[in-house]
Nucleic acid binder design. Structure first.
Length: 495
RNA sequence: CGGUCAUUAGCGCAGCCUGGCUAGCGCACCUGUUUUGGGAACAGGGGGUCGUAGGUUCGAAUCCUGCAUGACCGACCA
């Protein structure tokens, strides 16, 4: 049964896509629900994947000249009032700290908030850190010699969302936020685009997830930004997912926090800013890009375990196959491959096969008595679920090659899916037809007005995910209003 | 924040409608034996504030009310 019909503990994608996603996250041990509404516990296996992501991204940030720092979790309420559109974007989802002490309830019901311990000024749990960082940058920046400032922080943030999903939208989530300050607009724009490229490279080369790069429309733009650049990925249910954003903030925050620098010519100028971030939402993207009805599928670069070795046999035979596995495991380890040897003799081999498929381990190596005789091993790929018998000779290099191939083929497969679900559409009728059948990205003409954008969203629930960065010039008419348009934009229903 | 549904052992569920012996079942767990190439078999065993707070009642897992958490739908959302 489990050979062909998926894991019995996981709801199939075709039956209930949302439930499938939840099942994978829970059953693969990525995360658990917590006692706090909308929050989650990221479990060791899930966190190990996040740590891999962090380490690749962190290296890329360092390679582009950034340094890590850490700013406070709490932000004085007054800071958030300084940039009007910024606060407008976040006000509705901020957690507020009002008191600093608990006391024993006089009625004996545990502890209660001490009404005497009210804060002078309330503190906001950061939904993002622009305000506290720019209030700090004011002290750091005097002259052009202090610029640029290229800082990143790894942190948690809180946004009080109405409706949450594990990893995709949680009340508290982990992310990195880069905040840079520059002398010129050009330099800041260049930084914004550079970091977008870092994200796109990461998505494709590390996560094996193809993305569209583009610019957000005014409606979808970050509160307080001049331009928001983004990478957009397509999930297996035909819905788009914003996987990362990079904002050109202009001088909005410099003006709000009065951050000026002295130029070489001796004049005072406002500083130019960027900010950019990706979050644990990427974990959700990873799940929904590659996984199947048997469980998680991980690209080898991110897999905490790249190869699992399973000895098969009984009694004396098991002793020998186990010894052979041990020998191979240390050989692979020496090459830097992340291996796990599963010696548990309380679990049957079949049970283990299913288990490691659920966990998304890219390769499974099984050694049984027959293999010992023939000096072979059974090598099974998680992504294709193909098994082959291979000679033990040269096994390590074969495994290395196969891991590389899996990484490349996962990207190819995801790109083929994305491309075959990207449609050029010229009428509202076809537009809705696509959305109601397979879903996917829709390239269509748009007249550039918020009214048309809103009307399309109202009618179809699809939004403009981005205006492609390298938009082809093509004369056409807006799919909604019939007014002239100079190029196509990317529409989709989105997470 | 509104609607619907759910919450009983680590997990999945039955029991509730029609209140009443010691709250059951499957998986998992522990012991032992046999097993081991796709989620093994048998025997024995341990594990429960029935989400929570009240109410009705001689008696509540069961009926009523509030609250909490989750799922789905809607509104909301960089």
């Amino acid at each position: 049964m489990s050979e062909s019909q998926g894991n019995k503990e996981i709801t199939s994608r075709s039956k209930d896509y949302s439930q499938w996603y939840n099942d994978i996250v829970i059953k693969a041990g990525l995360a658990d629900y917590s006692p706090v509404r909308g929050c989650m516990v990221i479990k060791p296996y899930g966190y190990a994947i996040w740590e891999k992501m962090q380490s690749v991204l962190d290296s890329a940030f360092k390679a582009t000249g950034h340094q890590n720092a850490y700013f406070p979790l709490f932000i004085p309420k007054s800071f958030l009032s300084k940039e009007a559109s910024h606060i407008e974007g976040f006000a509705k989802e901020c957690a507020v700290v009002t008191h600093y002490r608990l006391i024993n309830d006089p009625n004996g019901n545990g502890v209660v908030v001490d009404p005497e311990a009210k804060l002078e000024e309330e503190l906001i749990v950061r939904p993002t850190s622009e305000t506290i960082i720019w209030s700090t940058y004011r002290d750091w920046i005097q002259s052009y010699r202090d610029l640029p400032i290229l800082v990143n922080q790894w942190a948690n943030v809180v946004r009080w969302e109405m409706r949450t999903r594990l990893f995709l939208r949680t009340t508290e989530f982990l992310w990195q936020e880069g905040h840079t300050a520059h002398a010129t607009s050009e330099e800041a724009v260049e930084e914004t685009r550079k970091m977008l490229d870092v994200y796109a490279d990461f998505a494709e080369n590390t996560m094996a997830m193809p993305v569209f790069k583009g610019v957000k429309t005014e409606n979808e733009r970050f509160a307080g930004a001049i331009d928001t650049y983004c990478i957009e990925a397509l999930m297996q249910d035909g819905k788009a997912l914003q996987a990362g954003t990079s904002h050109f903030l202009g001088q909005n925050f410099a003006k709000a926090f009065d951050v000026k620098y002295l130029t070489q010519e001796g004049t005072q100028e406002y500083v130019w800013a960027t900010s950019w971030g990706v979050s644990t939402r990427l974990m959700g993207a990873l799940v929904m890009t590659h996984s199947d009805d048997f469980g998680l599928v991980l690209p080898p670069v991110l897999a905490p375990i790249q190869v699992v070795l399973i000895p098969v046999g009984k009694n004396v035979q098991l002793e020998s196959t186990r010894a052979k596995c041990k020998e191979l495991a240390s050989e692979l380890k020496a090459l830097g491959i992340r291996v796990k040897l599963d010696e548990d003799d309380k679990k049957s081999p079949g049970w283990k096969y299913s288990e490691y498929e659920m966990l998304g381990v890219p390769l499974r190596l099984v050694i049984g008595p027959r293999d010992l005789e023939n000096q072979t091993a059974e090598l099974a790929r998680r992504d294709t679920r193909q098994k082959e018998i291979v000679p033990c000779d040269g096994l390590a290099s074969r495994i290395n090659e196969t891991l590389d191939r899996i990484q490349a083929e996962l990207l190819q497969k995801a790109r083929a899916y994305r491309d075959s679900h990207t449609y050029k559409v010229d009428t509202m009728e076809d537009f809705e037809k696509v959305l109601d059948s397979t879903g996917g990205f829709i390239l269509a003409h748009w007249d550039g007005t918020s009214q048309s954008e809103e009307a399309i969203k109202e009618k179809t629930k699809a939004t403009i995910r981005c205006i492609p960065l390298h938009q082809e010039k093509e004369a056409g008419v807006c799919i909604y209003s019939g007014k002239p348009s100079m190029g196509r934009v990317v529409f989709a229903r989105a997470y």
